[in-house]
Every structure is written in structure tokens, then in C-alpha cells.
């Protein structure tokens, strides 16, 4: 299957040329779900923003490419101007934001919000709107009674699904989800993950950025672990989550609470370096329990240690 979204050597700089994300290489095929996990500030949301061309003031892409393939051609989004880029945003690439409540215009009804995007493709946009709301997991009752409500009258779970419906109304090839389960109760979370799985089965490539490692374990085919703006480990989710190779991935997994084990969670010692601080060598070495001399001076590159498994650590072995 061909790659639909391909990121090559993508780097973003902030004020004072501080690197926010550095040399990101990723690719997504249709029907695949790639989970990106990491601490707050590791650059996950910046990665999504740089794909969408929505970096906040002060941040800019300094190198790399974001290739998207549609029926006819493959284009580098970073080389397109705003108007050309709009042909892909919302049509080929869907986006679900992190903040459920403020992601929807408070003055627009749920139906209008979804319909606004559907109109872009023309045709039977009303039918597509209803279909998107259904595919996002909203029941028939919602369509009859609540679809004409504004976000203030909807629950958090309903808002999240409306946001998903907004993103999928034009059947995009790529869906970018930023923390889709962050503010949901367990039932709503489960339903949203079901919807995500369903969308992948419809050949949509999904990039799922989340803190929720359990969610990635549940639905993801692949996982990428980000630390300090870099991918430190990437591989198939079943392998990576059961047998992590990078010390940071291991530490991160130890922080995940488990319902079947009564034990104290281990926090990762120290703090992630700030943008201003320039840590030489491996960015994780000040917090790493296995740090060696080489880690202080030499930054490890992402290398393949086994089939489809890449780790950026001097000590990792296959």
C-alpha cells in the first residue's frame, strides 16, 4: 500500500532558533493508525501544527517536507501557498483538536459546524453531514433532537464526536487527532476509540497524538515515542509497548497506571529540558538511569535495530 502522508526530516524552530522539533521522519499508509506519545512539551502538538501549516507566531518550519498523496499526485504541503494548501486541508486531511469545548464555534449549531466543511465539496452536503455525524458515533436521537444545539448545550463527549464528524465529513485520506480522549469519561473514551478504529477500517490513515498510552495500545498499529522534539523510538505497537528498547519509553510505560496491579507508579526523575537549555549529546541523558560517557557528547541517531523497529539510543540492541 502506498504512503499517504510522509514527513521527511521535518524541523521546527522557535524564537532564537531553538529547535522545537528536529528531523522528524514518519510515514502513514491508508488504514494505519500511528500513535505518537510523549510528555507534555515533547513537540507532539507542534508536529501536527506544522503539518497543518498552523504554527503559532514565532515558530517556523526550517527544513523538511510534508508529502501528501491524493488520487492524482503527491505534493509537498510546505511548498504550497495558503490557497493551494486549502485544497488539501479539510478535504484530504482532517483534524480533530485537543480542546473539546473551545474547538467548536459557540455560535454555530453542531449541524452547521459540520455542514460548513461539507459545503466545500458541494453536492449533497446535507446527506454527507448526517452521514458524518452518524459515522462519528452520534445516535439517531442526536440527529433529531440535539444536532441543532450549540456547543454550550452539548456534553463533552458529544462535542468530541461533532469535532470528529467535522473532520471526516469530506472523507479525508489522513486524519490528525490531537488528544481525542483527554477530557472524556471512560465510556465516551471507549466510544471515540471505537470510532477511530472504524475510520481506519474505511482506509483512513490516522495520526493519533496522545498522552493516553492505553488508547494507543488499544487502537494503534504503530507507536512513535517523542522526547524533546525528537522521535526516540518507533515500531509496531504490540512489540514496542511490550518490549521497549529506549530508556525513556521504558520509563514512560512505567508511569502508566494499571488496574490489575497495586503498585506505586515510578515517576521519571528530573525534568525535560526547556527549549532554552542546550543539552549536548542524548537529550535524555540527564534523566537516564543507564547513561554512559558517550551519551554526554554524542547525539544518537534513529537506527533500525530489528525489522521495522527504530531506536535513538547508543545502548539499544536488537
Amino acid at each position: 500500500m502506498s504512503e499517504i502522508l510522509k514527513l521527511r526530516n521535518l524541523s521546527v524552530c522557535g524564537p532564537g532558533s531553538a529547535e522545537i522539533i528536529s528531523g522528524i521522519n514518519l510515514s502513514l499508509r491508508s488504514g494505519e493508525i500511528l500513535g505518537i506519545v510523549g510528555e507534555t512539551g515533547s513537540g507532539k502538538t507542534t508536529l501536527i501544527n506544522s503539518i497543518l501549516g498552523l504554527l503559532p507566531n514565532g515558530l517556523r518550519v526550517v527544513s523538511g517536507s510534508v508529502h501528501v498523496t491524493d488520487d492524482e499526485q503527491t505534493v509537498d504541503l510546505l511548498k504550497l501557498n495558503g490557497e493551494q494548501c486549502r485544497r488539501y486541508l479539510g478535504l484530504q486531511i482532517g483534524y480533530v483538536p485537543q480542546d473539546v469545548r473551545s474547538g467548536l464555534n459557540p455560535l454555530m449549531t453542531a449541524r452547521d459546524s459540520v455542514e460548513e466543511g461539507a459545503r466545500r465539496k458541494g453536492g449533497r452536503y446535507q446527506e454527507r453531514t448526517e452521514s458524518a455525524l452518524r459515522r462519528a458515533g452520534l445516535p439517531e436521537d442526536f440527529l433529531k433532537l440535539d444536532a441543532d444545539r450549540r456547543p454550550g448545550g452539548l456534553s463533552g463527549g458529544q462535542c468530541q464526536r461533532v469535532l470528529i464528524a467535522q473532520a471526516i465529513v469530506n472523507k479525508p485520506r489522513v486524519l490528525l487527532l490531537d488528544e481525542p480522549t483527554a477530557s472524556l469519561d471512560p465510556l465516551a473514551r471507549h466510544a471515540v476509540l471505537d470510532t477511530v478504529r472504524g475510520l481506519a477500517s474505511e482506509h483512513c490513515a490516522i495520526l493519533l497524538v496522545t498522552h493516553d498510552i492505553a488508547a494507543v495500545a488499544e487502537v494503534g498499529n504503530f507507536v512513535a515515542v517523542m522526547y524533546c522534539g525528537r522521535i526516540v523510538e518507533i515500531g509496531r505497537s504490540d512489540e514496542l509497548l511490550t518490549n521497549p528498547k529506549h530508556p525513556y519509553t521504558r520509563a514512560l510505560l512505567e508511569c502508566v497506571p494499571r488496574i490489575d496491579q497495586r503498585m506505586l507508579m515510578k515517576a521519571i526523575p528530573g525534568e525535560a529540558p526547556t527549549l532554552a537549555s542546550d543539552v549536548p549529546g542524548c537529550k535524555f541523558h540527564p534523566r537516564c538511569a543507564f547513561c554512559e560517557e558517550q551519551c554526554h557528547s554524542e547525539e544518537p541517531v534513529l537506527r533500525e535495530i530489528s525489522n521495522g523497529r527504530y531506536v535513538a539510543c547508543h545502548l539499544a540492541e536488537g
Binding site: L52, L54, R86, Y95, P97, G103, E116, G117, R120, Q166
Partner: peptide, 22 residues
Amino acid sequence: QQEYIRVARARGIAPIAVWWRH
């Protein structure tokens, strides 16, 4: 600064429509 403005742009809504409707 509101998220829905960013979302509208990410959905490829035309700039004039973002101003007029959002």
C-alpha cells in the same frame, strides 16, 4: 486566540468565511 478559529483554518475554510462566520 480561540481554538475554533484554528480549527476552522485547519479545515480549509476560506479566510473570508473564517472572518465572516467565526
